[in-house]
Design a protein around this nucleic acid. Structure first.
Lengths: 209, 209
DNA sequence: ACGACAGATGTCAGTACATGACACTTTGGG
DNA sequence: CCCAAAGTGTCATGTACTGACATCTGTCGT
């Protein structure tokens, strides 16, 4: 009965179609922008119908967010790999900075071009930014669970893990934002994020340089 | 040349139409949900064409977000009114908690029914949640400026105000989230937010109860 | 090798959001 | 009272997305 291992020609074909759609989508997005690219164009470029596109992705935004999906998975994995005796915020800081570096340097299978592409798309398309933020919010629940585990707390009754996870994610977002605005000159995301977490550590009140 | 003071019958009529649209929109949203309510229905209820609806609001989400717009304005105003020698996070905490209370108790012209309605709509409509988060993100820039002013820092070159503003907003969002999940029993948003900011103050590491 | 079944795709029709163009009505000022 | 400006309605259009149904194509049992 072998439960039908998912390794046939059909599955491979599906995978290829999916990758092809993502690939042509990013190419078109980079060339014409997010809004100006229609689903039909993406589908045509892979020679499938737009109806098929929507069988692979729930929305036009969704195809761009596959990147963030991977980012998120990598983040959870990296967090799990950090030493258990590390203070929670330190662990999160190292994890976030590590993922940022991976995205920018193309480590761990991340495509730095797509990463940069996505960064500029987010700046120009509010629909995409909105979806991205929603995605982060949804995934924040996972992070909250992971954080709660690590701290030995129950997320159903303790606010602490919620606040910690939210702080980590928003610090990352704030760093991305600040980087786009060039607040730290042309520092990369990893550096900016590291500085942002440092501010969390040092406290906000002693800003007297 | 009096620059045409904006106080004629025309302006009043516009205002009334706008309020009527918002009002019927919330009513329909509350009754049928966000997605299930069409723009045409909202417009019909006020006896205008859907085209006119879009002359007042950029999108269906926009009409629901008028509430948040007011929240945001009130937040900035309340922050400006806090004593200048208060530590920044304390000022933000008091401000956020104050607005939360106002929304829930119906002070300062806020309609608690609409507030509760919006809370549950956000939980059920991802499109609305996404727009709301985008709105917060956009408005975060204003808060960053205000925070920078208060701290005497330049937001164009200093990360600190960005991190502080982001932390304040995400703490508020986390509180709203946790409240919907009932983490603190049936505590109201104001209480939950206050507890969340307290965690920020106490630090995350000493969770050993 | 063949045939049946399941899953993937295409086609078609339809809904809803959003926007531009243009004509018509109302309002306010001279 | 008439004119210009502002507000609105109607129509046409484009795009995202979905349901229904027909068709094609791997997969698997015999």
């Amino acid at each position: 009965m072998t439960v039908t291992e998912p390794t046939g020609r059909r599955e491979r074909k599906k995978l290829r179609t999916r990758e092809a759609l993502i690939s042509s989508a990013f190419e078109l997005f980079a060339r014409k922008g997010f809004e100006a690219t229609t689903v039909e164009e993406i589908a045509d470029a892979v020679d499938v119908s737009s109806r098929t596109f929507f069988r692979y992705f729930a929305s036009k935004e969704d195809v761009a967010l596959t990147f963030q999906e991977e980012q998120h998975a990598a983040l959870l994995a990296a967090l799990a790999a950090r030493p258990a005796d590390e203070p929670i915020m330190t662990a999160l800081r190292r994890t976030v900075v590590g993922i940022a570096r991976a995205c920018e340097q193309g480590e761990q299978g991340f495509d730095p071009d797509r990463f940069q592409c996505l960064q500029s798309l987010m700046a120009s398309s509010s629909a995409l930014l909105a979806s991205s933020l929603e995605h982060s919010q949804k995934k924040q629940a996972d992070l909250t669970r992971a954080v709660a585990d690590r701290m030995g707390l129950d997320p159903a009754t303790d606010l602490r893990p919620h606040v910690v996870a939210a702080t980590a994610i928003c610090t990352m977002n704030a760093a991305a934002d600040a980087m786009r605005a060039g607040v730290l000159g042309d520092a990369c995301l990893a550096e900016t994020a590291d500085r942002a977490f440092a501010i969390l550590d040092e406290g906000w009140d002693p800003p007297r340089a």
